[in-house]
Computed example of a mutant assay.
Amino acid sequence: MLWMIMSTDKPSQLETRNRLLAEHRKYLDDNARHIFFTGPQEEDDGSANIGSLYIVNAPTRGDAEAFVHNEPFYRAGVFDTVVIRRIRKGRFFPERAA
């Protein structure tokens, strides 16, 4: 089943995000078999990342929680809030993404 994990960063986390970016990307690569979609949340003008969005395929909520709890940004305390919700895939138009 699919789970949406939406995190919002604490203020002033850009330096920590940048420092952990390679580790974060490796974590995502190492866990690609569970990932449906990931991407950073950005300010409206695209000037800074302010959070993360993950859609993962995991059997249980506990597995989705484990995914985010092992994520380098989470472990470093970057995230202020994390929301996990079970979702269903509805309409899907990947060709419309830039």
Rank of each mutant, 00 (worst) to 15 (best):
E65N: 04
A48G: 03
E65S: 09
R33W: 04
Q41R: 12
I55M: 13
D45E: 04
F67Q: 02
R61F: 10
N57I: 08
F67I: 05
L53F: 04
F67M: 04
R33P: 01
Q41F: 14
N31D: 11
G39K: 14
L21Q: 07
K26T: 11
L28V: 04
G39V: 07
H34C: 09
I50F: 03
I55E: 08
R33V: 15
P40W: 02
F37I: 03
K26I: 11
A64T: 13
F67N: 01
I35Y: 05
A48S: 09
D29Y: 04
H24M: 10
N49G: 08
N31E: 10
H69Y: 04
F67L: 05
L28W: 11
R25F: 10
H34L: 14
P40C: 07
I50V: 15
E42S: 12
I50T: 15
T60G: 07
F36M: 10
Y27A: 08
L53N: 08
F37D: 06
A64K: 02
T38D: 12
S52V: 00
Y54R: 01
E43F: 05
N57G: 02
V68M: 12
I55V: 15
N31H: 15
E42F: 15
A22R: 10
A64R: 03
E43Q: 07
L53K: 01
A66G: 00
N49R: 13
D30C: 09
I35R: 06
H24K: 01
A66R: 14
F67T: 01
D30W: 08
F67S: 02
Y54T: 03
K26M: 03
E43T: 14
R61K: 10
L53M: 15
F36L: 06
V68R: 01
R33L: 06
T60S: 14
Q41T: 15
A58H: 01
Y27P: 00
I55D: 04
D44M: 02
A64I: 14
A32G: 08
P40K: 02
A48Q: 12
D29V: 10
H24S: 09
E65G: 02
N31I: 07
Y27W: 11
Y54G: 00
T38C: 15
A58T: 08
A48I: 07
N57Y: 05
E43V: 12
L53Q: 12
I55G: 02
P59N: 13
V56F: 03
A66M: 00
G46N: 12
Y54S: 03
L53S: 12
A32W: 15
A32E: 13
D45Y: 07
Y27G: 02
G46S: 12
V68S: 00
Y27R: 04
K26N: 05
L53H: 00
H34N: 04
P59D: 15
K26P: 03
E42W: 12
F37H: 05
P40A: 14
T60Q: 07
D44K: 10
T60D: 03
P40G: 13
V68P: 00
